[in-house]
């Protein structure tokens, strides 16, 4: 009996479904905070997507548009210029910094919660899981909205400028390809942005975390 009592085991679990549930709830309860983080992602991704879509619109018109429009477009900058690449990378960078900042704040205001979870037996990996899932959700929602906003805005602007031809000449398949790529980029960025805060949170000693008054 005494030996049975003394035995220390190692098995502690957090099923993924439960982790998803917990992180989803903490996003919902901090709705406005999450919204700000997410809108950072939306803006960055929308910008990226708008540049790609703009190119696609021009490409389509140049290939199949009427002569008049082709002439109009000749004068404009169509190629994916160095300046555009610069703008895109800059907007992505701002996006990463913004997300990291928001995640850091959400970690610091939850030190006590993290400490409590650890007291209840949570492993470092549980904390990782929770924070990464949160940023995954935010990244996914933000990127989807960003793609819709960015792509939609450019197509709308094209319609106003060049008329219905934009739709008839629009290369749909390449557009979907870009949309998926941008979506992936958005999710990856959100996860990268939260890596540092998540590792910060996971490494905390419970006593340390509980002492912190926020």
């Amino acid at each position: 009996m005494a030996d049975e009592r003394r035995k220390v085991e190692r098995q502690i679990v957090l099923p993924l479904s439960k982790a998803v549930e917990i992180s989803f709830k903490s996003l919902r309860i901090r709705f406005w905070r999450s919204l700000i983080t997410t809108s950072g992602i939306i803006l960055g991704i929308a910008f990226l997507m708008s540049i790609f879509t703009n190119n696609l619109v021009h490409e389509g018109l140049l290939e199949e548009g009427t002569l008049e429009i082709k002439v109009r477009l000749q004068g404009e900058e169509v190629e994916f210029s160095a300046r555009q690449i610069w703008l895109v990378s800059l907007s992505l960078l701002v996006c990463v910094v913004g997300i990291t900042n928001a995640m850091l704040m959400s970690v610091t205001e939850r030190y006590r919660e993290i400490g409590t979870m650890k007291c209840l037996g949570a492993l470092d990996s549980f904390i990782w899981k929770l924070f990464l899932l949160e940023s995954l959700f935010q990244g996914l929602v933000g990127s989807i909205l960003g793609v819709i906003v960015g792509g939609g805005f450019v197509i709308l602007a094209g319609l106003l400028r060049y008329g219905g031809q934009v739709i008839s000449t629009f290369p749909v398949l390449p557009f979907l390809g870009y949309a998926l790529a941008v979506l992936a980029i958005g999710v990856v960025i959100s996860i990268i942005g939260s890596l540092f805060p998540a590792s910060q949170a996971a490494r905390m000693v419970p006593a340390e975390a509980m002492r912190t008054e926020v």
Partner: peptide, 8 residues
């Protein structure tokens, strides 16, 4: 792992 088990 053992420490987490202990706390839990």
């Amino acid at each position: 792992y053992e420490l987490a088990w202990l706390r839990c």
